[in-house]
């Protein structure tokens, strides 16, 4: 169904609408509104489906961007979500706060040819936000739990991604963090107007529901040394 794609010639670039500046300044909420389904399909269809997708090359996670854009343009949103989450543990977070102009979007071929990049970040956010809404985002189910365990120090994005990947493989995981909430700089560094906190908290809850144990207010170095943790089983 190639006629679905390559619409950049006819359809101009549109990002989701930004909230009015006056409103924005009055609260700490995110400044971009959501795409509606039809707009998302329309914007995805601008992708030129390059043979060598430079967006993917310049995404640190090598996200399969052209494929999930194509699925979105075709209205196959569940498949788009499955594909998107297979390479990224928090697509809706990256879609919001990656500096896309230096990564995927900055290298989009349509951008280089002067048509304005495909709005990859907004699409990534849309696909997974929509999946959350539809209930497609499910906690990990471990069929055979292994007897080996892993301790993760720090519940920032690096620790959480490692914890999730290892849990999928059946290991017992405990995440230690010195703060009272998980998320690291996602919670305590990045301001709400770029990333609202519920987005992070629903991720953490999902990991808990998937059997990952969290120990908060636990500082390695104070509450235990690295050595003590390593000896634990």
């Amino acid at each position: 169904m190639t006629d679905k794609m390559l619409k950049f010639v006819k359809i101009g670039q549109q990002t989701p609408p930004k909230r009015d500046v006056g409103d924005r300044k009055d609260d700490f909420n995110e400044i971009y509104d959501d795409f509606i389904k039809q707009k998302a399909e329309e914007q995805s269809s601008r992708c030129s489906q390059c043979g060598v997708p430079f967006c993917q090359v310049h995404c640190p996670l090598s996200n399969n961007i052209p494929d999930w854009l194509k699925l979105t343009a075709e209205g196959r949103l569940k498949e788009a979500y499955e594909l998107s989450q297979s390479t990224n543990n928090m697509p809706e977070v990256c879609g919001r706060i990656c500096p896309q102009d230096r990564l995927c979007e900055g290298n989009c071929v349509i951008e280089q040819s002067g048509h304005g990049t495909v709005t990859i970040g907004s699409m990534e956010k849309y696909i997974t936000d929509n999946a959350w809404e539809k209930g497609w985002v499910k906690p990990i189910e471990v069929k055979f739990e292994k007897d080996q365990s892993v301790g993760v120090i720090g519940a920032g994005p690096a620790g959480l991604a490692a914890a999730e990947q290892l849990r999928k493989n059946g290991y017992k995981i405990t995440v230690y963090d010195r703060y009272d909430r998980a998320g690291g700089l996602l919670i305590y560094g990045i301001p709400n107007f770029k990333l609202e906190k519920y987005v992070v908290e629903r991720r953490t809850k999902l990991l808990k529901d998937g059997g990952i144990e969290f120990v908060h207010n636990f500082e390695v170095g104070k509450d235990a040394t690295l050595d003590q943790l390593r000896k634990k089983t």
């Binding site: 995404c59 640190p60 996670l61 990224n88 543990n89 928090m90 977070v93 990256c94 706060i97 990656c98 990564l103 920032g156 994005p157 690096a158 620790g159 959480l160 991604a161 490692a162 914890a163 990947q165 700089l185 996602l186 990045i190």
Partner: peptide, 9 residues
């Protein structure tokens, strides 16, 4: 964040 996720994986 995206590099942190990549490293974690």
């Amino acid at each position: 964040v995206v590099w942190a996720i990549k490293d974690g994986r």
